[in-house]
Design a protein around this nucleic acid. Structure first.
Length: 930
RNA sequence: GGGCGGAUAGCUCAGCCGGGAGAGCAUCGGCCUUACAAGCCGAGGGUCACGGGUUCGAACCCUGUUCCGCCCACCA
């Protein structure tokens, strides 16, 4: 018996558990090898191995999976390439923190042992995020999973480095870079987060070397004065022009420094005199270079004062040094004043340490030549951003692109493939053995080489992801088949870090774009619109929405390991207020559907749990609709039947074609919100609310022949079966579960819905005239229900109905009287003969007036109120339409069909108005009499 | 300083080519109608941020203003 196979309520957990393992085991995620079918490929943005799944992943991976599943059903050779990123700095920090807890450090271990330790950590903990990804139903091809530190990936990285180097696009140089004094490494410009903080502007007096007086300079970093080499004024600044060329005595150091003129100075800021510290400020460095000034570095790598500075300050941390320098200057009477001042402080995006401009040897990628090609690819449409306006952001950055500092002084990462000879000559090669041969050739003997100790920026390997994962630099079949990939789905936050660099590298090494489209998603925010972050304590874990979580566990989770434990109480309180009962288990499908429904283009999404719950209910609705279908179709044979005979059958099939078309259009335009809305509206609002109700009188009619019922049973099953396929990309689990039961009934079964064909519009099933007839039936039923609802008539009470109107409308009613009688709970209907009975409620439909004699049942006053309300709305509508039709401009300028439409409305409204007025008159009479 | 978004029902958001303001949630009323109370049937709720313009007609196009958000940038 069918009913026993489906429980009464949908239980997401038990359904979801059943399928993923099977799909993966049976290899359904791997590309089909279907001959010459078109290839379709998406590269997952590889999540950090250190990461765990967050809402952003849930959002983006749902979108990617929906695209992939649909394409797979369309029959393409579909690859969703997956893998993880070694995340150099993040991973190294995780392991270093562990070492710290054990009372040791990476330096105690040494490089080799440390790396071993990181690999061990990766083995044990690196799989978290890919396990979580599976819970989302992500159908990536795990058999091709890559890690950015795999040997093949490392080979590709070295190859890319060597080729760029040989072309002069990678070079080494001593430059001022952003330096993280905690991590002791350079970082790229993009890894600098500048935030406004409250500081001070110190006004310092620098006395003249000869004679009386001083110059006042304003600075936000007084401690760097120990490295000053000049004071600059603007060449056109008349106040200071006479000072240029004279010498100052730099306080605390005894050094003499010149006053110079440079246009960098803004005469309007501070005193118009700027101290120049080429070693510790990007602008000053340029000024220094222009004037051939010396560069005096006063910091050690961990930002303590070094031996270049006077002895008194050596060894002091930069912040202590600041205090001491200011104190000493104050003692000497050299501080004029200290103003509060807001300024931008640069911090490292990982360590949050204040960064220092620091002069070191680093490796750089010469970006401008690569950027040129990359811009052209977007200009000429080889790559398209969705939404389109992101190309502005892209161009803006590309036009002003700076050389990319790619060397990092950390250990976890791709080591730079450069070896130095005894004289410092660099040998750059993909293969270590070859390097020694190259060296032997140069020096005439075998020599010892030392390898560059640095590793590459993690984003360097990420930039190669789209082709390196497919086998580059080898010309593999996969590379030929799947590259360029179709679409990249990612967030705007990594357009520069990743998207732009993939485009540059892709074009450079393959001559082709890495992807044809870039779909930029919004950010998932909390219910109040705040960015989710650990420190704010407002993180929602997608798995908690899937599995549910009780309040105490949620509070514990949000307050555990907080960077600022003092916030824990506040976070706990806010959590208790927002989720007094914890979070319900909504299941993966509901979460995915919510993500799709909220995926509006060009806008961040505020995660509304009510929405997720609503879609959990939708799952349940679907579940129960399927139970109903199974109960009524199982055990019957309707093979060979293809016709749709009844109005409901023909109507639902016609509507189904529309949904298929809408779904295709929406998915192709990346309008997942439209896709979700169309499916929801069709399945709940049309299939369940109307069709399944309309089918009941047919199936329950004992007088009707089985064959007639079987026609309807078949349509019912076929419609559901097709809908499940349409829904599958967004709700993979429940659709598989239900499809396995439904599809065999129409001989369509298969091992998995994943490989079932994507629905195709059957134009012959579309029938506008029939839909209009169905609309009439539904409007009539709704009108009766409306009266019932407003008049508080008991739902079970059967009512008689009187109608009058056009022959066509009456005929439609006659054709579907059985259906209408059931849906509207009518006792009988007849054409109005003579006067409208006293106390009848009235409603007006296109071409028909209906009257329900309710004398003694309804309250005349209530009916009067109802009619007046309707009339009021109608009057407003009529006034608007009349206004247009009496406007000469409208009549002469508007399109004829628009005018005709308005005229039709005017006739309809006028007629309706008259009916309502008549009814009101009657009711008032009755009310007055009673 | 430059650039990009956003402002529509109590809340979260749709609204396509300019032509009768929509959905979900929440609210109110009535229902255990044998698929579903995670449900069914109804109802109420809007100065489309504000000003000006174009147009026969503007939530939509142009322009100005206010507020909110984000990105980029070397004012010491």
């Amino acid at each position: 018996m069918s009913e026993s196979t489906l429980s009464k309520a949908y239980d997401a957990a038990s359904v979801e558990k059943r399928w993923y393992g099977l799909w993966e085991e049976r290899g359904y995620f791997a590309p089909s090898d279907a001959g010459q079918a078109p290839a379709y490929c998406i590269m997952i943005p590889p999540p950090n191995v250190t990461g765990s799944l967050h809402m952003g992943h849930a959002f983006q991976d749902t979108i990617m999976d929906a695209l992939i599943r649909r394409q797979r059903m369309l029959g393409g050779r579909v690859l969703w390439q997956t893998g993880t990123d070694h995340a150099g700095i993040a991973t190294q920090m995780v392991v270093e923190r562990q070492l710290e807890a054990e009372g040791t450090s990476r330096h105690d271990l040494g490089r080799a042992l440390f790396l071993e330790r990181v690999w061990k950590w990766k083995q044990q903990s690196g799989g978290t995020i890919v396990r979580q990804l599976r819970r989302l139903g992500a159908s990536c091809d795990w058999s091709r999973e890559r890690f950015t530190m795999d040997p093949a990936m490392s080979h590709a990285v070295r190859e890319a480095f060597v080729r760029l180097y040989n072309e002069g696009l990678i070079y080494r140089g001593k430059r001022l870079v952003n330096w993280d004094p905690v991590l002791l490494t350079a970082v790229s410009d993009l890894e600098v987060i500048a935030e406004e903080e409250q500081g001070s502007l110190w006004h310092l007096r620098y006395p003249w070397a000869e004679g009386e007086g001083y110059v006042v300079v304003a600075t936000t970093r007084p401690e760097t004065m120990l490295g000053d080499v000049a004071v600059a004024v603007h060449p056109d600044d008349e106040r200071h022009a006479h000072l240029v060329g004279r010498e100052l005595l730099l306080p605390l150091t005894g050094r003499r420094i010149p006053v110079i003129a440079d246009t960098h100075v803004d005469p309007a800021f501070g005193t118009g005199c700027v101290k120049i510290t080429p070693a510790h400020d990007f602008n000053d460095h340029e000024v220094g270079a222009r004037h051939q000034l010396p560069v005096i570095n006063i910091f050690t790598p961990d930002a303590r004062i070094n031996d270049q500075a006077p002895e008194a300050y050596r060894g002091l941390d930069r912040f202590e040094a600041r205090k001491r320098v200011v104190e000493d200057l104050q003692q000497a009477g050299l501080v004029e004043r200290i103003d509060p001042h807001k300024l931008m402080i640069p911090r490292g995006d990982r360590t949050k340490a204040v960064l220092e401009p620091y002069l070191t040897d680093q490796w750089f990628v010469k970006a401008a030549p690569l950027a040129e090609e990359a811009m052209r690819a977007v200009e000429d449409g080889r790559i398209r951003f969705i939404p389109g306006n992101w190309d502005k952001t892209y161009f803006e950055w590309m036009r002003n692109i700076q050389d990319w500092c790619i060397s990092r002084q950390i250990w976890w990462g791709h080591r730079i493939p450069v070896w130095y000879g005894p004289d410092g000559h660099p040998f750059v090669c993909n293969c270590e053995e070859m390097v020694y041969e190259m060296a032997a050739e140069r020096y005439g003997q075998v020599v010892r080489l030392t390898r560059d100790p640095d590793v590459l920026d993690t984003w360097f390997s990420s930039a190669l992801w789209p082709f390196a994962t497919l086998g580059w630099p080898k010309e593999t079949p996969e590379l030929q088949r799947y590259y360029p990939t179709q679409v990249l789905v990612t967030g705007f936050d990594i357009i520069f870090f990743w998207v732009a660099r993939m485009i540059m590298m892709g074009l450079k090494f393959t001559g082709e774009v890495p992807f044809r489209e870039v779909y930029i998603t919004g950010l998932v925010r909390d219910a109040d619109g705040n960015k989710m972050s650990k420190s704010k304590g407002n993180i929602l874990d997608p798995l908690d929405l899937i599995d549910g979580i009780d309040l105490e566990s949620l509070v514990e989770k949000r307050t555990r390991d907080m960077m600022q434990p003092q916030l824990a109480a506040k976070v706990a309180a806010a959590t208790r207020a927002e989720f007094p009962n914890g979070i319900l288990a909504f299941g993966t499908d509901a979460l995915r559907f919510a993500m799709a429904a909220l995926a509006v283009q060009g806008r961040d999404i505020k995660l509304d749990l009510g929405r997720v719950e609503g879609y959990r209910n939708f799952c349940n609705k679907l579940w129960n609709a399927t139970r109903f279908v199974l109960m009524n179709a199982e055990g019957h044979s309707f093979t060979g039947l293809v016709e749709a005979r009844t109005l409901p059958d023909r109507w639902i099939l016609s509507r189904l074609q529309k949904v298929i078309a809408v779904m295709d259009g929406a998915m192709e335009r990346y309008r997942f919100d439209e896709a979700a809305a169309a499916l929801h509206r069709f399945l709940w609002g049309e299939f369940c609310d109307w069709y399944l109700e309309m089918v009941k009188p047919v199936l329950y009619d004992e007088a009707l022949a089985e064959v007639e019922k079987n026609h309807t049973r078949r349509v019912m099953v076929a419609t559901l079966e097709c809908s499940l396929r349409l829904l599958h990309p967004l709700m993979p689990f429940i659709t598989e579960e239900l499809w396995q039961k439904v599809a065999p009934l129409i001989g369509r079964g298969g091992a998995t819905i994943m490989r079932a064909p994507w629905p195709v519009v059957e134009a012959s099933r579309e029938d506008a005239a029939l839909e209009a007839e169905a609309d009439f039936v539904m409007a009539l039923v709704t009108a009766v229900r409306n009266v019932r609802g407003e008049m508080d008539i008991p739902p079970g009470k059967r009512l008689p109905l009187l109608v009058s109107g056009e022959a066509g409308a009456i005929e439609m009613l006659r054709r579907h009287e059985g259906l209408i009688a059931v849906l509207a709970k009518l006792e009988s209907w007849s054409e109005l003969a003579g006067d409208v009975p006293e106390g009848a409620a009235t409603a007006v439909l296109p071409g028909m007036r209906i009257f329900m004699p309710l004398s003694g049942i309804i309250d005349p006053a209530a009916e009067i109120a109802r009619l007046e309300k309707t009339l009021q709305k109608l009057e407003a509508d009529l006034a608007r339409v009349t206004g247009k039709l009496t406007n000469a401009g409208f009549l002469s300028n508007a399109k004829p069909e628009v005018v005709a439409g308005e005229q039709a409305k005017a006739r309809e409204f006028t007629e309706k108005r008259q009916v309502l007025l008549d009814s009101l008159t009657r009711m008032r009479r009755l009310g007055g009499a009673g």
